[in-house]
Simulated scan of single mutants.
Amino acid sequence: MLDLAKLAGQLPGISQHLRQETIISRQRLELAQTLQQQANAKQTELVAILEQWRDRLLFAAATPVESLDSSIAIEPAPYSHSVFATDGSQISPSHHEIAYCYLINVGQIALHYGQSLHPLLDSLPEVFYKTEDLYIAKQWGIRLEEWMSYRRTVSEAELLAEMACNWVLPPGCHQHIPNLAMLDGSLIYWFLDGLPGEAKDKILSPILAAWERLRATKIPLIGYISASRSLEGLNFLRIDSCAHKHPDCITYCGDVEDKYPCQKVDSLRDATFWATRLQPGERSPLYRSSLRILDLYDEAQRVYFCYVNVGTEVARIEIPAWVAEDSELLDRSLSIMLAQVQKGYGYPVALAEAHNQAVVRGSDRARFFALLEHQLIRSGLRNIGTSYKEARKRGSIA
């Protein structure tokens, strides 16, 4: 039980700290605006320097592919369009339960506007209990809970592609209707960095195959990131702030233990910066991400991003290269995304509904294990039940 009386004495210190951070953040923001103006005047030169010295940098700096001073208005969404979205949840395995297994539940949503069609609001559960499912990650030193979340990411991508393509592909059906496929979160799977090659391949290959299905069917894909903490865009300004002849971090700053000389704006986030530059309904210039994990992606699937003022926040929007390089497809995708946020009162309604379909509540978990227990008993197994520890934790004598 949380003792609020003891906690209350610590709260004034938190408020004082946040007040000081606000003042410092305002100063960083003013400096970032000045650096942005300077970089905009010689953007082509800085991009060339970045491409030449990228392998020597100790930080990830995205490459702007449009003018840095761009603030581009997003057009209204077409009257008739379709939106597809998936999101996942899970029940983690526990040795204290009646069976050692885990469950992944993926919510799938298809919303059709201006077409007089019923929406799809559904979920697809899958139970993993075989030895190869439970212990395959052990050979790579990956915890089962981590591997389960990776498998969930794969399931979300595969189900999204299957749902969207099956809707669009039948001849004479819906090819002419504008559409959009949405995922909650980043398309840059940074968690793969550091995993063994075989493990990476088992996760990334099916994801990229699903994306390729969407590309072949011309269904644009975006990743919607709320409250983004990324610094990639502002890190581009560090190229111009380098105190040395060349931005060769490995040579000049490899032994720096504290703050690099080019870190003029410290930890200021991209979203915080663009919140001061964009009006509601506007987007920032496009950037091409340079995170090294993207070297594993196909060239057509490398990730670009921009920031969009959706009215309630500045969201980071990520798209594959094949969407970014098609201006008509890009504009249409962003217009449908913005309409989704407006319909969802600050967050895309399709993603919110996909989450609601996927989420596994405590009562759902209890019913799942009750159903499993009943099935095990019917199969002739005896002594089925939770451990004494788990049973005791579910009650209290207090």
Rank of each mutant, 00 (worst) to 15 (best):
E390M: 11
L294R: 01
K138I: 14
E212H: 08
P196V: 10
A157M: 07
S335H: 11
Q16M: 11
Q38M: 07
P220I: 09
I188R: 11
G107M: 06
I336L: 02
S289W: 09
T63Y: 05
Q279S: 07
L381Q: 15
S333H: 05
E132P: 02
D248L: 15
R28T: 06
D258S: 04
A227S: 11
W274K: 06
L231T: 10
I74P: 00
T312N: 08
Y345V: 13
Y388Q: 14
R56L: 13
L31A: 14
F305E: 02
I384Y: 14
A300P: 00
S149E: 15
L195K: 11
L68W: 07
A8I: 11
H174D: 04
L204A: 01
A137T: 11
Q263L: 05
L192I: 03
L57C: 01
G395H: 09
E21C: 04
A5S: 13
I222C: 00
L11A: 15
V106E: 06
I207V: 15
G13E: 14
A61L: 05
S149T: 15
I384R: 10
D331E: 14
A271W: 06
Y297R: 07
W147A: 15
L144M: 02
Y252N: 06
S155W: 06
H176F: 14
K259C: 10
Y102E: 01
L2D: 01
R215I: 09
T217V: 04
G380Y: 09
S25A: 13
S289F: 08
A164W: 08
S186L: 07
L192A: 03
Y260K: 05
S226Y: 04
A137N: 14
V314D: 00
Q90N: 10
P220N: 09
T386V: 12
A164E: 10
S82N: 01
I317P: 01
I74N: 00
L214P: 07
K264M: 10
R152A: 09
K264F: 01
K202T: 15
E328L: 12
L286D: 05
W274A: 12
Q43C: 03
D201L: 07
S92K: 09
S205L: 12
A271L: 06
L286A: 05
T34E: 12
I188A: 13
H244F: 12
S80R: 07
A300M: 02
K245G: 06
V47T: 11
A199P: 00
L160M: 04
R56S: 14
D240K: 03
Y260P: 00
E232H: 10
I377A: 14
I239N: 10
K389Y: 12
W140Q: 08
E325D: 04
R229T: 14
A275E: 12
R316P: 02
L372A: 12
I24V: 05
I239S: 13
A199I: 05
H95S: 10
W211G: 07
L7K: 07
M1C: 09
L11E: 14
V349R: 11
S149W: 03
V106K: 01
K389P: 01
A216T: 15
R292E: 15
L329T: 09
T217S: 11
P171F: 05
P93L: 00
R26K: 09
D255G: 04
R28P: 00
C306E: 10
M182P: 02
F128L: 03
